[in-house]
Design a protein around this nucleic acid. Sequence first.
DNA 1: CATGAATGAGTGTTCATTCAT
DNA 2: CATGAATGAACACTCATTCAT
Lengths: 218, 218, 218, 218
Amino acid sequence: MPRAPSPSAPHRRERRKEARPGELLEAALDLFVEKGFAATRVEEVAARAGVSKGTLFLYFQSKEELFKAVVRENLSRQVSAGAAEVAAYKGSTGDLLTHLMQQWWARFGATKASGISKLIMSEATNFPEIAQFYQQEVVEPGTRLIRGVLRRGIDRGEFRELDMPHAVFAVLAPLLWLVMWKHSMAPCCEVTHRIDPEKFIAQHAELMVRGLHKEKQS
Amino acid sequence: MPRAPSPSAPHRRERRKEARPGELLEAALDLFVEKGFAATRVEEVAARAGVSKGTLFLYFQSKEELFKAVVRENLSRQVSAGAAEVAAYKGSTGDLLTHLMQQWWARFGATKASGISKLIMSEATNFPEIAQFYQQEVVEPGTRLIRGVLRRGIDRGEFRELDMPHAVFAVLAPLLWLVMWKHSMAPCCEVTHRIDPEKFIAQHAELMVRGLHKEKQS
Amino acid sequence: MPRAPSPSAPHRRERRKEARPGELLEAALDLFVEKGFAATRVEEVAARAGVSKGTLFLYFQSKEELFKAVVRENLSRQVSAGAAEVAAYKGSTGDLLTHLMQQWWARFGATKASGISKLIMSEATNFPEIAQFYQQEVVEPGTRLIRGVLRRGIDRGEFRELDMPHAVFAVLAPLLWLVMWKHSMAPCCEVTHRIDPEKFIAQHAELMVRGLHKEKQS
Amino acid sequence: MPRAPSPSAPHRRERRKEARPGELLEAALDLFVEKGFAATRVEEVAARAGVSKGTLFLYFQSKEELFKAVVRENLSRQVSAGAAEVAAYKGSTGDLLTHLMQQWWARFGATKASGISKLIMSEATNFPEIAQFYQQEVVEPGTRLIRGVLRRGIDRGEFRELDMPHAVFAVLAPLLWLVMWKHSMAPCCEVTHRIDPEKFIAQHAELMVRGLHKEKQS
DNA sequence: CATGAATGAGTGTTCATTCAT
DNA sequence: CATGAATGAACACTCATTCAT
């Protein structure tokens, strides 16, 4: 016997038609980050999103397409956060750099979104297309941002001359490594020397700033 | 081009039990690095080693055991390489640190073996056992080594006091990130700012050493 | 001969989840009885049930679980059949015993289900779990039933005192042997002395009853 | 360096060339009885016989041929034991029957050889050829023997008239069941009501003899 | 739109059998 | 004769994908 739908209550099926893809992407993000592409089963993604396996394929042509959509969705969000801050900053470049790193951790590294950086690094060889996309959308802008900051330091007479492209990555690498570590080794090795992200960044920032600065007067 | 069989040439069913594991490990290393653990098929490993699937299982109980053997073969032996150098080194600690990093790249980072560091980071959550093995066999000794060097610098009055555990990772992180990068993004993004590993390490080392050093007496 | 699809006929991908397990169990019973556990391939079970291999694993976690389900389906239910009859029986214990044996043959021995008793005896050592299950679910209740009957005979002064545990099996053994025989030797040896189960049971029952009875007057 | 063989000591390889097949058959008997045909691995048979897998195939064309040889070898041995005893026996037929059963257990049922009866029953459907062989070599002579004994009893006025073919199996069935039980359920179900073979046979014999005898007093 | 029953290609692993030494 | 390294067919089980309802 079919139950008569009451106009005031939404039908069971109606729940959130247009919200579906988003729920699926969120569930997929969690699982891909946790298990990687191959070990994630689409059925589990569907289940976590509260729909059936068939429904997932209604929105995404294949598991690969789902993966790409997850990455694209989450990549777009995190671009161009710090550019404004740099432009507005008044203090020393060392302080600016330290501030940016801390902000980066608070706004990105500590959130679930950092999982997709890990994801991309992990699966890059299986999805070159994604890797290139990431390169363009995230790496390029990010390196430009840091390059600008280092340039600012040099121009203002605070920093030494640098091997610019590599110096940029010397600044970024520990941050990128940190999110990889957080999503790979850290969950498995609970035993020793648990890294405290904030302290790690503080130590890295201090070493960087000192390393970048011109010798104290000389 | 068919090769003419020479009477002294080995026959089709050549006995070379001693050589097999090595050949299989090499083939496995190649494929695991190229495709990751899950995407590598044991049959392909066997084929690349020039044997049948059954033969592989003659030497390795399972795909996972094969993987562990690859790790042991390629990582565990690299570990204690630097310890000796540290003990014998006479010069300044800054030079020692720079030297160690360059050696590490030459002996490990630049080789195919570095691919499995990337692999482990990528698949750690699916193989916690492997991750822990890596932690014990590689990460722990590596951090101990660096800690010893930093301690040497402090004891000799060259370096400042440090937040030791995090400083160690500040030194290591860019190196570990470099192998990740080399095996994930680098192959896909041939376009811009190709990182030159030696220059990157040089820049990192210089920044680190400057950052670690006491202020030039001021 | 292609069957003309009638509009009311079920479509190719018919939904009949409720019917599937039963069809699979029946096919499995046939094949397990015919070939034994190890020699039966799940794919063939599925094919005989008209479904694909994957579908079988939709309903049974493993080949072994399928086997257990077959056992449960066909044996466990047969158990308590006779208990009621015993309780309600009014006549002599000798007649009761004879009656029970005949009923057992009609309801179990003569059916396909008896094949799994043979199967279990054959493969018991490879599946101790199954053997214990059979022991608990079938052997124990069965021996209890017979013990009750013998006790009834003794209590009513019809039967002699007995070495009870072994007398029980003296009663049961020929029946159990009969199903073994039916499913092992009988199909191969069509030649001589084909055993007629009903007559065999009649002869066994008569001998048993006479053997159990007190000496006529003495 | 090859060791020079001393003439007085047998070479390692020479050990027992002609004993090999026998050792293999013995090992195979043990394992087939214990695990059944499918679950027995030829490598284990070879290992237990102290030779390599290849050597086994030097003597037996295939696993199936090995199985058949095991059965044939052990079947031949056990025929025509009791015929002489029957002919020479002077006492009552009831005592003769009881005596035969006890002897059968002592000389066959209790020995490893009984394992092949179990084996044949278990694998009969997979090896019809074997089953027919067993029928001719063992079952036929055995039933003839018992038939003779029953005939003796009737002719001497001790036993009643019988449904002869079925009476024969009524006598034999518990014995055959006993060896099946011993090699299947008994090893798994150590818990309750462990059957004592001698007592079981005693109880069976007593019931049979009483059941076969003419009514006392007449 | 949503479902979930059904599919079948694909994978790791086993093991009887072969054959060069 | 004996070996044991090598083979490859076979099998249980998985899971992305489809489609009738």
